[in-house]
Lab assay of single mutants.
Amino acid sequence: MSIQHFRVALIPFFAAFCLPVFAHPETLVKVKDAEDQLGARVGYIELDLNSGKILESFRPEERFPMMSTFKVLLCGAVLSRVDAGQEQLGRRIHYSQNDLVEYSPVTEKHLTDGMTVRELCSAAITMSDNTAANLLLTTIGGPKELTAFLHNMGDHVTRLDRWEPELNEAIPNDERDTTMPAAMATTLRKLLTGELLTLASRQQLIDWMEADKVAGPLLRSALPAGWFIADKSGAGERGSRGIIAALGPDGKPSRIVVIYTTGSQATMDERNRQIAEIGASLIKHW
């Protein structure tokens, strides 16, 4: 067993022997301040990774656009098919120029040779490549099948209805392509620590998230040296922004954090800054 596999296998073990965790309302004060600064709703939840206990939450059962955070769930569904012998990570998928959609920095470079399922998941999570996500959605049967996968996990809230990039439209009061912070946090925890996926697939999923290259201005910008984070960000229309993450000190994750916002007129930089400040408060009061 590799060191990384050992780390993920012992996530519940280490967490069980940690000192009790206590909620700190100071972080919620910052979440509410972010709402004021952005002029928009902000949803927040913080779960203990081992027990699933909610440590703090704000608007945990209000719907927010998922945006690209759905790509972690998508690759979880792909990995479940791999575990069941219905898919192979090494299978190569070929596609054409007509398949390319807006923001496809990886797939646009491989029109000639195609990409493997493993490479597509890596591109979808680490670079948020939209064509990679659409190609992977095709392998599982489309958005409705991802929703069905989530329902089978016990998540009857999260739903995907459309493809990239239309799913980022974020129309107010439109339930399409949305989740709730509580539902997303619980589902992410199941994917990373539950028995739904094999140990190898859980490790692969967290490795992809740990290698995320496009979430630097968010929670990662607030992390002290030595902290662990595996995350996936999302951005959408109407001032929408979000991030889902597993993080913790001492090089291992111990909490799940989900943050979503929508309806702001603020710039992307300002949305990023507010999420980073929430992260800084979380870490300060850990």
Rank of each mutant, 00 (worst) to 15 (best):
I229R: 04
M67T: 13
V157D: 08
G242R: 02
E169P: 08
A215E: 03
N134C: 05
H156G: 06
E237W: 11
V29N: 08
E270D: 14
G114F: 14
P65Y: 13
G154R: 05
A222D: 11
Q204L: 03
M180F: 02
V78M: 11
L38N: 01
S80R: 10
Q204T: 04
L111K: 09
I125L: 00
V106T: 07
S254R: 04
E61W: 03
E210S: 10
Y95L: 01
G194H: 00
M66Q: 02
A222M: 03
P253F: 15
Q203N: 01
Q88K: 03
A170Y: 05
S51Q: 01
R159W: 01
L247R: 10
D33I: 06
I278N: 13
D231A: 08
E35G: 07
Y44W: 06
M184I: 08
G114S: 06
S201V: 12
P165H: 02
V257D: 05
L197G: 07
A40R: 08
I259A: 10
R271L: 09
M67Y: 13
T267F: 13
I93K: 04
I244C: 14
T187V: 13
G263P: 15
E270R: 11
M268N: 04
D207R: 10
R63G: 07
Y103D: 05
E56G: 15
Y44C: 05
E175D: 13
T198L: 11
R63W: 14
G279P: 11
L191H: 10
Y44T: 04
G236P: 01
T198V: 12
Q274H: 12
H285P: 03
K144H: 05
F149W: 12
A235G: 02
N130H: 15
I140R: 10
L111W: 03
C121V: 05
D207W: 08
I171N: 00
L73R: 03
I278K: 09
R162Q: 06
A133G: 04
H156N: 09
H156S: 10
F149Y: 06
F149C: 10
A280G: 09
E175G: 12
R202W: 07
G52N: 15
S96K: 15
G39P: 06
S254H: 06
T198H: 08
S51H: 01
M184W: 05
S240L: 06
A222L: 12
F58G: 00
G85S: 14
M66K: 00
L89K: 08
W163T: 12
L55N: 07
R202Y: 05
G226R: 03
D33W: 00
Q86C: 03
L197M: 12
E119F: 12
Y44E: 06
D207M: 13
E102H: 15
T107E: 03
L223C: 11
L120C: 00
K232P: 02
L135T: 12
A185L: 05
A182E: 11
D83P: 09
V82N: 05
Y95E: 04
E195V: 00
L247C: 13
R162T: 09
R202G: 08
A132E: 08
E46T: 15
T126P: 01
R159K: 00
I140N: 03
D231W: 06
R202N: 11
P172E: 10
D129N: 02
M209A: 05
E166D: 13
W208V: 00
K284T: 08
I45K: 00
G234S: 04
L79C: 15
I283F: 10
P65A: 06
R59C: 05
V257L: 09
Q265W: 13
T107Y: 14
I206E: 13
S201W: 04
E61R: 05
P253G: 05
G239M: 11
T27Q: 04
Q204K: 01
S254L: 06
E145H: 05
L47C: 11
R92A: 03
V29I: 03
T116I: 05
L38M: 01
P143V: 06
D250H: 11
L79E: 15
Y44I: 01
A170C: 13
G114H: 01
P60R: 08
L137C: 15
S201L: 12
A40F: 15
S201R: 08
G194K: 03
P143I: 03
I259R: 04
I283L: 09
S128E: 00
S128Q: 02
K109Y: 15
A132I: 02
E56A: 15
A276M: 08
V258T: 10
A148G: 13
S221Q: 08
A235P: 01
Q88H: 12
S254N: 10
M268Y: 05
E35R: 10
L160E: 05
I283C: 13
E169A: 08
V117C: 00
S221G: 10
W286T: 02
M153C: 10
G242W: 02
A148R: 06
L160K: 03
A235F: 03
L74P: 10
E169M: 09
Q97P: 14
L55C: 10
E237F: 13
Q265E: 09
S128H: 03
N98W: 00
I229K: 02
M209V: 06
S57G: 13
P25S: 03
L120A: 00
E61P: 05
L146I: 15
D269V: 08
E102C: 03
H285F: 11
L192H: 11
K213Y: 14
A77E: 00
L150P: 14
R118K: 00
M180P: 07
R273C: 06
K284N: 09
K71I: 06
D212S: 12
G248A: 03
A211R: 06
G194L: 13
A40G: 10
E61Y: 02
H151Q: 05
E56R: 11
G154M: 06
H285D: 01
L219H: 08
G216E: 00
F228Y: 02
I283P: 12
E164P: 01
I259E: 05
R81V: 05
S51W: 01
E270Q: 15
K252V: 11
G239Q: 05
I259W: 12
S221P: 07
L28S: 13
L199D: 13
E119C: 15
L89C: 07
N134E: 09
L120T: 14
G226W: 03
P65V: 03
H151T: 11
F70L: 03
T69V: 07
A132Q: 06
P60L: 07
R59K: 05
W227E: 12
E46V: 12
P217D: 13
A182M: 13
I54N: 07
Q88S: 08
L199P: 09
P172Y: 14
I93N: 02
I93R: 04
N272I: 02
I283S: 07
L188Y: 15
Q88P: 10
R273I: 05
S51K: 01
A84P: 14
L38V: 01
P143R: 06
R162E: 09
W163K: 11
S80F: 05
A230D: 08
A266P: 07
P181W: 00
G194N: 13
E119L: 14
E26P: 15
L120Y: 14
N134S: 07
G248F: 10
S68F: 15
A34T: 13
L146K: 15
L146Q: 12
A246R: 06
T178Q: 09
S233D: 02
H151D: 14
S96Y: 00
V117F: 03
K71D: 00
R238F: 01
R202F: 03
P172D: 09
R92Q: 08
I243R: 02
R220Q: 02
C121K: 13
G141P: 04
R81T: 08
